[in-house]
Each structure stands twice: as C-alpha cells, then as structure tokens.
Design a protein around this nucleic acid. Structure first.
Lengths: 335, 335
DNA sequence: GTGAAAGCGCTAACAA
DNA sequence: TTGTTAGCGCTTTCAC
C-alpha cells in the first residue's frame, strides 16, 4: 500500500505537505503542489480513509439501513443513495435488516461507530434505532420523528391525483387497500385520501386494511373491495394491485371494466402485468440521493448546531396505463 | 464515543486487558474478563473498526461491486452478501457501477484500500478492475479469470434441464435468445445448450442474439424466433421472456399454444406475468452468501498463500409454470 | 510555505 | 495474567 510517506519521499517533501497539498491545495505553493500531485498520481496513491478518519474524527463513510434490499422499492433508494455517496467521495455501508426490528437496532448500533451518519429507510423500530445511534447524525426516509431530518414522498398529493383521475373517469366510490399496520406511508396515504375526499366532495373513500404489502395482500383484499360496492380501488403498492387484479379476475370480474385499479410506486412490474397498471410514480432514486445530501449537510455542520429539521416532500406523478377506465354504467359525461 | 480507555477505567484494568478480554477471552483471567465485559456492556462500548483495522492491517469491511442495484438479479446477490457479511461481523460497502466499465474500475480502485477484499459481480471490465485491486483478495461472481476465485451459477445444467423439459413436451426445435455480447453467463448458456443438444440428439437448437437483457430485447427478438420455425424458446432472462411473450401476442400468437417460452433467473416478475413463466431458478442470495464466504477465507489466509482457485457452480432448478406446453401439432406421446 | 511532532482508537510485542 | 509502549496512516497544531 502506498502511504503519504512514499509520496513524500518521491516528491522530496514532508508528509504534512503531502497531506496539505491533497486536502487543501491552496495552502501549498504551486510548484510544490505540482510535485506532490504528480508523485501521488504516479505511485497510485490512495488515501486510507480509515486512517484519515481516525485522526479527523470522521470515517468518510455513511450507512444506509433498509428493511429489504430485494424489494425493488428499497433497491431503488439504495441505488440513488449509493450514486450520490460516490459523487461525494463517501463510502456507503448498506445493511438489510430483513424487516426485523431487532436486527435493525443491532445493525444501527454496530454501524454507527463506523460511519459519520446513517440513513434509516422505512425504519421498523425508529425509537430504539435512534437511541442506538448515539449522537450520530441521521436522516429518516419515509418516516418522521420530531427534531430529526427526514425525506418523504408526498403521498398526500399522490392520493389527490389518484382521486382526481378516478373522479374524472366517473368514479364516485373508491376503496383504499392499505399496507402494514405500522407503516408511516400508509398513514400518510390515508390522511391524503381523507383530505382529497373532502375537497372532491362527490367522491367517497372506503378504507380497508391492514394488508401485507405483497401480492398475497392484494389477493386477500379483493373480496372486501368488491363487497364495498366501490367501482375503483387504490392499492398500497403495485404488488398489492397485482394481487387484487389476480383475485378479481379469478372471480370473473374484469379490470378495468368492472373495477379500476390504481397502484403505488411504479415498480417495474407495473407495466409488465396485464393490464398495465395506472400508478403513482415516486422517484425513489431521487429520494436516496436527497437523503444522502441531507445527511452530508448534517455531517458537515454537526447536528448539535441545530439544523432546521427539514421535511422535504418529494413529488409524486400519476402514470396512467390500462388498469383504470370509466365505470361500466356511468361515463364521465353521463352522471 | 466510548473507547477502550473508558472501559478500562470503569473496569479498573489497562486498555490492553480490555482489548484482550474482548478479542481473545481465553487469554484473560475469568473474573477480570467478567469485569471488562460487564463494563463494556454497561457503557455501550462499540469497538471502532477503523482504528482496530488500522493497527491490524485489516479494515473489517468488504466491498461488493455490482453493475446495477436496481436490477433484482443483483439486488438478490447483494442481499445475500450483506446478510453473510453481517453474520461474520464485517461491514459491506456496496457500489453500483451503472453498467459503466470506467466507473467500475474507478470504484474498485477507490474501494480496494478501504476494504479487506472485494466481490466483483458480473464485472464489465474484469481485467482492468483486477489490476486496480492491487493485491487485494477478490471473488468473481458469474465470471471467471484464471487464478482467481469465482462463484458461478451452473448455467450448463440449467440449459440441459430446460431442453429435457421441452423435449419431453414434444418440442424438437428450440430457439435461444441470447443476452449481451460480452456476457459471461450468455457464453456459458450457449455452451450448455450445445452440449445438451448433442446429448438429446433429436433436439435442435437455434441460437439468436445478442439482445439487451431487458423487456425490449425480448420484443426485438420475437420475430426472429418465429422465423426460425422453432416451437419453443429459451430466453436469456425473465425480462427478455416477458418481452418475447408481449410481441408474440401482438402478432396474434399464443403462448404456450403456438410457442413455449422458458425464462431464466426466476425473478419475481416470472410468476406475475400472463402466462406465469416456466424458468430456471438460481438462488442468487446464496450466490452472494457463498461469495462472501469465499472472500472471507481468502482474507483470512492471504491469496499469496495460494488458495486453490475454486470454481463452485451453484445449482439451478427448473420451475415449471404455464408458459410451456406441448407444441400444437405434436403431443409428447404422438411423435 | 513547510516540517516536526503529537495523537485519533486500537492491537501486539515485550516486560513485569 | 496483566500493564507498558510503540506504532498503523493520517491530519493538524505549532514552530520555523
């Protein structure tokens, strides 16, 4: 391994000059700087982050904690977070907690000392995790805790867009198939739905839930949806929507003729299934990037400095495909 | 942050005793050990890996380099790798190279000094990446370079299983829709197919390719497949299979009645699309786990010690769903 | 503008 | 069995 000493010797300077030339070039005379950078390049010098961090009190690495990497939702967030971390010259430890709150807490406490800060994505045990962090900066994704920075998707507006769309098609009674009991996103969606229903006062929303955020959850919910008499349904995510469609068809109902279905997330399954799903797209990679940006800011200016606990809601876009249509009996212009 | 000094003070011993009590408990008297562990637990002591690594010459972290984290294939590998790394008490840096060879090389050279070794998954620029590694241990996934340890999926046997299945259904002419030009897996599949065709000598294989490993690649390949006169087709992966089905249907052909389709990987889309795909399942999480195991072994016993460059082919399983059936004209028992 | 030297948290000789 | 001490590679005062 090439060290500062090797570079220093090659450039004929001291190790402190090497360090300075590389870290704060303006504090070193131009010709010296040249020699140092040339020597570093030639030798293929790569600063050892562990060592520099040890001294500087920073590790040069961030941590990302997600419940399930195999879930395309979190994979997308991870991808964005990773890209931004790389751009910023930071390493990113990725941890998968397997949806297990205990593993989450354990991971956080193990990761915290090796990093400058963590991004907790859809945490399943926020309180204990935050406690395990010690005083390390943290950014929450799709969750919110007073006093902490968070990056969230604007679920409320998403629900409004979905309802507007369904209303324009002529739907007046819409079911919502909710996600896991303790999901923060689910709670936001329900709020958004209630607010939207109030605003669009001729639309009625029937809330169902809690269902597993999987295809199986959608299958389980389908019959309840039919029983509500709704002509359209909004699902917690695209997988649930797929499960709904599956079971509805098995009962001989057609999507969208008998029932319109709206998914959430625009996971890539959404356009592969039959019919392709109308869904609410959120830019998850962007969420990951923004989370890392916020975290970097916190790391730069320590949290004790009291950064404003920004809550930044990321935009959601309605993507219309073939799973939504006017209800059988009523067209948009024939009330 | 709690350091060895804090623990030492609390336990009334020296810092080296703390270090020893935690690292090699058998070298410390029982009562002392008790006091130390108790103090450590009470204070919430977490060893600083950067520091210990600095001294020991190891970082306690591994790196995983994948072309695209959002691809469920690599996400699954990453999940498995992460799980095993955690079990082994190692951190895992995850890097997404965005399918860009230059980014890959750059990532490897940046990551190598911060880690004890790397897993390179489906590398797009093996040679330069391996060079960038310096002397750091490496494990290749789905690739092979003489002298290096690799973990690969047994594509050849997979192809044999697929062909046996199709042959049993009565198919005699099978097309293969290949993946990217420089894909190592694609080359193995073609070899496997050729060997299987030789063995099952009444089955003929028509190779097509290179196509993008996406839905679009399948769409692009469909018309060529039809032109070959094959009654069944094996696709590079499930996404390609989905694209094939899409385009075939658009042309008025039925799957599986007119053409049977076999995918690869058993990505979770496979069972969501219509018809659900017959596919070759490989346990990607297992691949990730095994890769980390192999890498840990290399890190423990340095590569210079000349570990045997194991090539471990992971089993593939045929999963039969509805996209394969006997050809229209010929049943299995009516030759 | 540059160098010498101290020390980040930890481990591993070496002493005691 | 335990403590003392010398660094790992780097940054950062503090002199010069």
């Amino acid at each position: 391994m090439v060290t500062v000493h090797d570079v220093a010797r090659a450039a004929g300077v001291s190790i402190s000059t090497v360090s300075r030339a590389l870290a704060s070039p303006e504090r070193v005379a131009a010709p010296t700087r040249e020699r140092v950078t040339a020597a570093a390049r030639e030798l293929g010098y790569r600063p050892n982050r562990a060592a520099s961090g040890l001294r500087a009190g920073r590790t040069g690495a961030l941590g990302l904690v997600v419940p399930d990497l195999a879930n395309p939702y979190f994979a997308a967030v991870a991808k964005g977070a990773q890209a931004r971390a790389r751009e910023r010259g930071l390493g990113l430890f990725v941890v998968d907690t397997e949806e297990d709150p205990r593993l989450e807490v354990e991971s956080v406490s193990g990761l915290a000392p090796q990093t400058d800060g963590l991004v907790l994505c859809s945490p399943r045990a926020v309180d204990r995790s935050v406690e395990a962090l010690g005083r390390r900066p943290v950014v929450l994704v799709n969750h919110h805790v007073a006093g902490l920075t968070s990056v969230v998707v604007d679920h409320a507006t998403g629900m409004l867009r979905a309802l507007e769309h369904l209303r324009a098609l002529g739907h007046r009674r819409v079911a919502y198939v909710g996600g896991p009991e303790r999901s923060w996103s689910d709670a936001r969606r329900r709020e958004g739905l209630a607010a939207a229903a109030e605003r669009l006062d001729d639309v009625e929303v029937v809330e169902l839930g809690a269902f597993r955020p999987q295809v199986s959850g959608g299958r389980a919910a389908a019959d309840l949806v039919v029983a509500t008499g709704a002509t359209a349904v909004v699902a917690f995510n695209d997988l649930v929507a797929v499960g709904l469609v599956e079971r509805l068809r098995a009962r001989g109902l057609d999507v969208p003729a008998d029932l319109s279905v709206v998914g959430c997330d625009d996971a890539y399954v959404a356009e592969l299934v039959t019919p392709p799903l109308t869904t609410l797209r959120s830019d998850l990679a962007d969420v990951g990037r923004v989370a890392v940006d916020r975290l970097s800011a916190l790391v730069g200016a320590p949290p004790a400095a009291g950064g404003p606990e920004t809550e930044e809601a990321r935009a959601v876009e309605l993507v219309v495909r073939s799973s939504t249509a006017p209800p059988r009996s009523t067209g948009p212009s024939s009330p």
